[in-house]
């Protein structure tokens, strides 16, 4: 599966300035995404997990330049996205689409479902009107909705249905990459499974590559080929699903995995309880950002930033303990 590289992210950084004082000068930065690098292959699903505030959504949005990056490069099919002007970027976005977290906020309440699904095609001037109408009907069917629903408004749909509309909207211009920003977090568990299965079906049919952002490890496990773990704006571990779930290396990944509930009452599990809260990204800890909550932390962790290294084939981690 992993032959062609679709996306390459190199040292991506996104800092949000904190303004203060009378003159509104920048007095600091929120380091939402701090030096993240990874590669995505065509046709795969890369899951990104992390607590809220770990910068995973910001990373997804910065990758397609919904936010302007502070530093770094993103190559999409070999093209550096950050060299385009804002206007050119609008055209380039055709190849990458986003599915959003909140199905109640991500659809314009004043547009019908058909208008919403048609809009990307209108923006990119694809097809004529009747072809677009056909395409809308076809897409509605593909995501498991009746074609007649096109004339309705978003408020008449349930969360799961709206998320299907969001998928149809993203698919309407045949993108190669879909960044799914917690697409099922706002849904009921039963509906989550349906949407995830739908996403899987669509992936096979349209040869999509997913960047699947979530905070739920079990959801990510079901869909992903590889999984990356983010903490405080950094990737701490990235590996094949199998390697990561069976042999997590980073203490943070271990703690996260130990918190996944297992539906077996007889299985006694040792849970690793993390002390304290996630620190402020405005003032991240020195050295390894995880050291204040890490039970293995050494003096070295407090001072020196761990490097992002490949410790086994396709298994990346940033931790001093693996030396």
């Amino acid at each position: 599966m992993k032959q062609t590289v679709l996306v390459e992210v190199k040292n991506l950084k996104k800092y949000f300035p904190i303004k203060g004082g009378i003159l509104k000068r920048t007095i600091g930065h929120i380091k939402a995404v701090d030096d993240v690098s990874f590669t995505m292959y065509k046709g795969e699903t890369l899951g990104i997990v992390g607590e809220s505030g770990s910068g995973k959504s910001t990373m997804g949005r910065t990758m397609i330049r919904l936010y302007e990056p502070t530093e770094g490069e993103v190559f999409f099919e070999g093209d550096n996205l950050f060299k385009y002007s804002r206007k050119e970027m609008r055209r380039v976005r055709k190849g990458m689409q986003m599915v959003f977290q909140d199905p109640f906020a991500s659809l314009n309440p004043r547009m019908t479902i058909a208008e919403l699904i048609e809009e990307p095609m209108v923006v990119h001037k694809l097809y004529d009107r009747s072809e677009r109408n056909e395409k809308v009907k076809e897409l509605l069917n593909k995501v498991g909705l009746q074609a007649e629903y096109g004339s309705l408004y978003p408020h008449e749909f349930s969360g799961g249905q709206r998320q299907r509309v969001g998928l149809a909207r993203a698919l309407s211009i045949n993108p190669k990459l879909i960044i799914a920003d917690e697409p099922v977090s706002a849904l009921d568990v039963s509906v989550q499974a349906q949407v995830i299965n739908l996403m899987k079906d669509l992936q096979d049919e349209f040869e999509l590559t997913y960047l699947f952002i979530a905070h739920d490890l079990s959801v990510v496990k079901h869909l992903s080929d590889r999984v990356g773990v983010m903490y405080l704006g950094r990737l701490v571990e990235l590996a094949n699903k199998k390697d990561l779930y069976s042999g997590p290396v980073h203490p943070y990944t271990q703690a996260l995995l130990s918190a996944v509930p297992v539906p077996n009452p007889r299985l006694k599990k040792e849970r690793i309880i993390l002390e304290g809260d996630i620190p402020s990204p405005a003032n991240p800890p020195s050295g390894c950002v995880f050291h204040p909550r890490c039970k293995y932390a050494t003096d070295r962790c407090r001072v020196e930033k761990p490097l992002w290294r490949e410790i086994a084939k396709d298994h990346y981690v940033a931790c001093h303990l693996v030396d």
């Binding site: 976005r93 055709k94 986003m98 906020a105 991500s106 809009e119 923006v123 969001g166 909207r169």
Partner: peptide
């Protein structure tokens, strides 16, 4: 989010 969505599809 729907404004972000409009921007992500490439809307002017």
């Amino acid at each position: 989010e729907f404004i972000l969505s409009a921007r992500s599809i490439g809307g002017s």
